[in-house]
Write a protein that binds this DNA or RNA. Structure first.
Lengths: 209, 209, 209, 209
DNA sequence: AATGAATGAGACTTCATTCAT
DNA sequence: AATGAATGAAGTCTCATTCAT
């Protein structure tokens, strides 16, 4: 139950605290992000922190919501729309992912790594929904007959596959592979998958085409 | 060189401790796995624990190595070989993944969720290497001309995509989607991806737009 | 001297704050009565609270004084006087006690429980003095020769015995005994005690053994 | 859930901690008795305290149980039995009460003051039961016809009246009255009460005999 | 080697009080 | 005078690690 001190001051303090939390996570990692360190980074007393957030958990939740918003905004700014080719759409999305994970000094990367311990549902849903809608529109436009009933499943698979593959890649600092290669690989995989007919029954080896 | 009783004893203690660690993780989750609880489950004193492992970290590392071995063994037992069709190979692998993540009361699931905080490289490599070799052999057999220079990239993408998509699926207890659907989806995606030509320049959108 | 508006305002604020304190104690209990909660219930800022009371302690003191006054007023309203029989006097007093402790949603009950941490002297004295005077008058009327020098001691004993026995009774929600039984028991005890000769040397056991 | 370290060492530590708690309560009062102060007084780390008591609450509970035992032992040692006169029995009991409350530098006094915030049931029951049985035996011996069905009520009233009157007396350091006077007054009151017939219906004033 | 009691830094949270506006 | 944001000491509890026996 967060108190709502009046207006400006309040909003600013909340932002300051969330910002400090971000910096703490970036500098120390989520495991060493403590309420006192956050307060210190915000140049504020611990007491103040608890005047705006009733618990560390709530503060983290606010951060996650902000992240969800940021990603939502970022997604909308993407220069991809239903007029692009599918390849362009996918390429843009993948690029967006890498950009996000590399931005903010790796903040989102650290959050993604720790998704299981965080209230990450909003973020996951934001991504899920956006791409679901985008693909719905796209396929409806060009292939009215396209069987989109398993689109949700496909998007779930694609979104998760993509994010965690990228996270894993970036997390190993020894770039065994160039980011570009993985980027291309992901694009190929996604395109190939989307062009597949749903619910195929034929058990085909590579040469069964 | 025959093992001395001492070494025997030692080996046994180490196994007991690792086993206790596993049970603790299963019962309490990684976050609530403490050295005391481990020692208690092992019917051993904390002091003894520290006789065999110089830190909690090291114990966890041993656990991860054991996990890597177990997975290696499991992989070799897979009834899939270079004589199967690609679809059969992939299906078997995916099935193996789900089986693993659901086995041991979710031990591997919990470890996979927390991979970033764990020395998970060996495990990742074991998987990576196994599938890399398997696919090398397979493709060499059927497509000597197959350009396998980007096979590592593909395997990296596929392995990570698969594991984390499965982990995410299992972690949301509200099975929005049936495991079977995701399983099939993953299989389709992987097959489609592997049948793609490497380094493609052609813009093969559904209609090449 | 007419009160200035200022004093008026001040008086009103003080009352509001004391009232809020009472409500807080009733709702949360003394242990969870904080200055912020009081201010909140009073629809006033903490700052204002400290404008009128230099500390929480002082506010509580004011509350206790008000309580002393209230009890004084209540005592005077009692339909008992020196014309009643002693039994009627005592019965009325005991009844008054239970009524008080059960009134105001248990406010006085909570305060009585915590008497030691509170400036409860005024309250104690109010009760003490009232019953001392009442009994003085009563005994002087009927027994001019009654040695009232130990009356103070008797009243001290009676008042404290009564209050805390009642508090203990009400505090155990499992009414092992009906309130009525304890009420009667107290009445009997007090009557028996008051009818005793002071400073008795005779060993009047049931059979003087 | 207290751990049970082996044997001697354990028992000793538990005693040391309870002892430190007692000293802390005596020196600082219950309100300023903190886990760290207790540990400090016990020359032990806070961690050790929590190895033996899973919470401050549990430690306090152990202290209360010890108090209940001590009182039980003290009661049994009382040189009063069913052969004494009732006056002697009561005198002994009252004396015992004052002795207890004045012993241990006021430890029991402070605990009695704070009964409501403490797990005091065992102590209350110990006293209640002891005196209930004692009086049962006594009355059965001399007055087989004595209606003892309301004895519980009487003992409840007497025990609580006595304790809290004594506590109140001792708590006001300005001995307005000599302890001896209150002691005698209590004795008279109790004797007078016990010699009363139960459930009287006559509404008698002091002169209505 | 084994034991497990002891350690103590450090995490989260509360709340009476102050002070700039 | 009023506000309420800010303060920070203090409280409870945890847990990886050490060390005397």
């Amino acid at each position: 139950m967060r108190k709502s001190p009046k207006q400006e001051r309040s909003r600013q303090m909340i932002d300051t605290l969330i910002d400090a939390t971000e910096r703490c996570i970036i500098e120390k990692g989520l495991d060493f992000t403590t309420t006192s360190r956050i307060a210190e980074l915000a140049n504020v007393s611990v007491g103040s922190l608890y005047q705006y957030f009733s618990s560390k958990e709530e503060l983290i939740e606010a951060l996650m919501n902000k992240m969800a918003d940021d990603i939502g905004v970022g997604l909308k700014k993407l220069p991809i729309n239903e007029l692009s080719s599918l390849r362009n759409l996918v390429t843009g999305a993948i690029h967006f992912g890498f950009t996000m994970l590399n931005s903010r000094n790796g903040l989102y990367l650290e959050l993604a790594r720790n998704w299981y311990r965080l209230p990450a549902d909003n973020v996951a849903n934001a991504l899920q929904q956006h791409f679901l809608e985008l693909s719905r529109i796209y396929f409806l436009k060009y292939y009215r007959e396209y069987p989109i009933d398993d689109l949700e499943v496909r998007i779930f698979i694609i979104v998760n596959s993509t994010i965690f593959t990228m996270v894993r890649l970036i997390s190993q600092n020894n770039s065994m592979w160039r980011e570009k290669d993985i980027e291309n690989g992901l694009i190929e995989m996604i395109l190939a998958y989307l062009q597949t007919n749903p619910e195929p029954q034929s058990h085909v080896g590579i040469d069964s085409r």
